[in-house]
Structures are given as C-alpha cells and as structure tokens.
Simulated scan of single mutants.
Amino acid sequence: MKSKLNFFQKVIFAFNIFFAACLLIAYILPFVPPKFSAFLSILNLGLPVFMLINLGFALYWILRLKLHFIVSMLLVLGGYSYVNKIFIFKDKSKEQVKSSLKVMSYNVRLFNEYDWIDIDNVGQKISDFIAEESPDVVAFQDYKRTDGLDMNAFPYSFEKFKTKSSKIGIAIYSKYRILNKGSIDFPNTHNNAIYADILIHNDTLRIYAAHLESLKVIPDVKQLQKENHQKLISRVGKSFMKQQEQARMLAENFEDTDLPKIVCIDMNNTPFSYVANQLLSHNLEDAFIESGQGLGKTFDFDFLPLRIDAILNEKSIENIDFKNYDIRLSDHYPIMASFKLSD
C-alpha cells in the first residue's frame, strides 16, 4: 500500500478527518449531559450517518491501496456496540414458555386527529391490530380519547392528561388488575410519564408509559432546509436539555419502588443518547437488544430510519421475545416485548 497523496486525495482526506472527528464526538456524547453542550448533543442524532460516511471513506482508500483507510475503519469497527442498538445481525432463538406477559408500546399520534395520513377510522384499525396481536398490557403515547378505539378486552386502565382541557395524554391498558397508579408530571410541557402497579398472578410489576420531550422537528429534509438553522439548533438543544431533566425525574421514581419495572417509552432520542444511558443505568436492559431481530426502526425521518421508541425492563425480568411492526397508522411504529412469567 502507498501513503503518498495527490492534491485531490489530500482534499478527500481532509473531509475524511472532519467526518472521523464528528463520529468520534458522537461516540463520546452519550456520556456527556446535554446541559453541558446542547449544540454538540445534536451530533449524536447523526451517529449512524457518520458511521456510513466513514465506512465509505474506508472503502475508498482500500480501493486505492492507501493506508489512510485505517482511520475510518478503526472508528467504524470501534462502534459495533452502537450498531447493535439499532440493528441485530443474527436471529435469536426464542424460548418456548407456558406463561408470558406481552407488553406493547405505541405512540398513536392522537389517532390521526389532524388527518396527517389519508386513512379513515384509524382508531378502529389500531384496535383491530391490537386485538390480533393480543398483548396483555398496552402503553399509549400521544393518546386521546376517541370513539373509534375499542379496548374492551382490557378491563383495567389508567389515562392521564396534563390539564382538564388538554387533548394530549398518555395511557396504560391492562388485562390484569391495577393495584396502584401515579404520574411523574413533567413541568412546562404536554409530555409526561405515568405508571401502574399491576398484579400478575402472585407477582406485582410496575409498568411505565413515558413520553419525553419532542424535538419539534418535521421529518422531512426539504422542509428542514427552509428553516432558520440557528433557531432549529436552539430548539432541538432545548428539547435535549428538557429530556435530560425528564429522564432524571423518571429515574428518581424508579428508586422509590422495589417492584420490578417495565418501561414503555418514546424517548424522542436515539438508543445511544445520554438519556438512554441515564435510564439503563438503573438496572434496566433494552428488550430489543436482548431479543430483537433485524432493523429496530420505530420512526421514519425522511430517508433515515430511527429507533426512538423502546421497551426497557428490569434485569430480573426475563425477556424472551421482541417484535417490531411495519404498520403505518401513526408516524411511529408499534413495538412489543414478551417476558417470562414464573410458574
């Protein structure tokens, strides 16, 4: 291999170093609170893109027999643990059990209240989907009461709206009895988190439905290009800082109970973000990483599939299956995790 570069290749390598630096920063950011630098935190959203760009640079230098491929290749290989949070490369064997608990999480975007998709009776179609998949517990984010929603199979429920006049809320529906319930009540936002202590046979679990601060970004690159970039960066940065505080409040509630926990959450952030690390540090694991397969997409950002919804469970609860669905009835896709119940 040769190391000498011509002028054009020097320009290419300069861009290579820039994107290598971006990827390195993105690797570090999950350990840096957004309040330290909201601007830098935005780079974390681009981590998968930076990895692909660096992989492209590495292949470019390999094809030209240049040792310069080492920079990007080492960075890409060093980020395998991040890739595993959005894509599971191998099929995982599913344990066959007699008794399991199936928990679904779904941001339903107000059941198409504002006709963002050209589909009628979205509430009824979501009801039919849930009936077909037959979860034992369903957690809804971006929830509202709607005539089309039929949840009669779930005799127990807990709805929470931030104000009496607010349409936007969050809800938990359960086939098992709810013994206790409560709300975290995030300040200065419509977003919120609730929990329900559910009696399952002789055990009690705490199930959370959580919705962290939205980034308030239209998932269309052309539309984003029309926005004032400074205002966009400022808005996203403020949302990250709110998410940090909301995750802290949620984690504090974790410490207030000894009950095993399952957290159904729309993070509005990536699984390799600071807030994800903050929550997982409380003896939780990511059900998708444990039992998922393939691409963990839960949201489409134009051409970029994102996994911003997750089901986290206490490590003492055995996760045996995880499903991603490709049903287009919201701007999010539903997910469901299955857990082994004691005999």
Rank of each mutant, 00 (worst) to 15 (best):
S165R: 06
F161E: 05
L295S: 15
K4R: 13
S99C: 08
R328K: 15
K167N: 14
L40P: 08
K144M: 15
E255Y: 02
K90T: 14
M267H: 01
H211R: 14
K323G: 01
P219M: 07
E314V: 00
K125R: 09
N253Y: 15
P34N: 06
L304D: 01
K85Q: 12
I53Y: 11
F57T: 11
G237E: 11
D256Q: 10
L40S: 06
F322P: 09
L232S: 04
K162C: 12
I119L: 13
N6H: 09
P219D: 06
A210I: 10
L110D: 01
E95H: 00
Y176D: 09
N180Y: 06
V236E: 07
N277G: 12
L306V: 00
K167M: 13
K238N: 15
F13G: 00
K10N: 11
K164N: 11
G123V: 10
M267Q: 13
F50Q: 01
Y143L: 00
K35Q: 07
R177W: 09
I117T: 12
L341D: 03
R307F: 09
E133M: 09
I207W: 00
A287V: 10
I28G: 01
E133V: 13
Y176C: 13
F158N: 01
K297A: 06
Q141C: 12
N191Y: 04
G56F: 08
D136S: 03
Y60G: 05
V97H: 05
N269F: 09
E245P: 01
M241T: 09
S166W: 10
L63G: 13
K164H: 08
D331A: 03
F8N: 03
L232V: 11
E245S: 04
H282D: 07
V138Y: 08
D185L: 13
N324R: 07
L77H: 11
N112D: 13
N319H: 03
K323P: 07
L75P: 00
K323A: 07
F254H: 06
S291T: 02
Y156A: 00
L179K: 11
